[in-house]
């Protein structure tokens, strides 16, 4: 499913993950803004982009913490009313990141949590995408993650295209080349 050149995949890997260093690392203080010396000490908590955290974890240098978007508080909110949770501000790549990070931190509940969240929100998107007027950008769009926005856009664009066809338009489109040639004669 994941493509090497998929822009969303690349952007998703930029998400910051809090990770704890298992060992001290010298000359990499640039990673840790609070470091006083040029060394990142053992046990320091550092925000790393996902791609770096993933690599360092595979070398057993860091351990990855559960990102705040999968913590207990968010889960409670999702349980209460999934459609109103502002997932975008928490993590625009909520589902993608969840899929990647679940096997890494070995939390089996994340998978089903994502599924429950998506099922609840998808019904809401479905209802709104086909019914809202197509000029105004609705307020609830600001709550959606990247993937959900794409879903919404897909549903809306096909509906808009259909409505446009129904009210009618030009039935015959003249080839641009013909238009040019005709003009001098007219």
């Amino acid at each position: 499913m994941a493509h090497y050149y998929d822009i969303n995949e690349i952007l998703m890997e930029e998400e910051n993950i809090t990770s704890t260093f298992k060992v001290g690392a010298s000359e990499v203080a640039v990673l840790d803004p609070c470091a006083e010396t040029s060394t990142v000490e053992q046990g320091a908590k550092v925000e790393l982009p996902f791609w770096l955290a993933q690599y360092l974890r595979s070398k057993e240098v860091v351990t990855i913490d559960v990102p705040p978007c999968f913590d207990k508080k968010t889960r409670k909110e999702v349980q209460a009313d999934v459609a109103c949770v502002d997932l975008r501000s928490r993590c625009p790549y909520f589902y993608e990141l969840g899929c990647k990070i679940a096997p890494m931190i070995g939390d089996r509940t994340i998978g089903s949590f994502l599924l429950v969240a998506f099922r609840g929100r998808y019904q809401d998107i479905l209802r709104k995408a086909h019914s809202t007027a197509f000029v105004v950008a609705p307020k609830f769009l600001t709550l959606l993650t990247k993937e959900e926005t794409q879903l919404y856009e897909a549903a809306k664009s096909s509906m808009t295209a259909y409505k446009k066809w129904r009210v009618g338009g030009t039935r015959f489109e003249r080839v641009p080349i013909l238009k040019k040639r005709r003009k001098p004669n007219d």
Binding site: M1, Y95, C99, A102, P103, R108, I110, G111, S112, L114, L115, F118, R119, Y122, L126, A129, H130, E147, Q150, L151, A154, A155, S157, S158, M159, Y162
Partner: peptide, 23 residues
């Protein structure tokens, strides 16, 4: 045709989230 793009994407997402490696 109207529901096709939405449906396809939804099923893809469900498939992704429901894959055995996730659960």
């Amino acid at each position: 045709n109207i529901v096709r793009p939405f449906l396809v994407r939804t099923l893809q997402s469900f498939y992704k989230l429901d894959s055995p490696q996730m659960i």
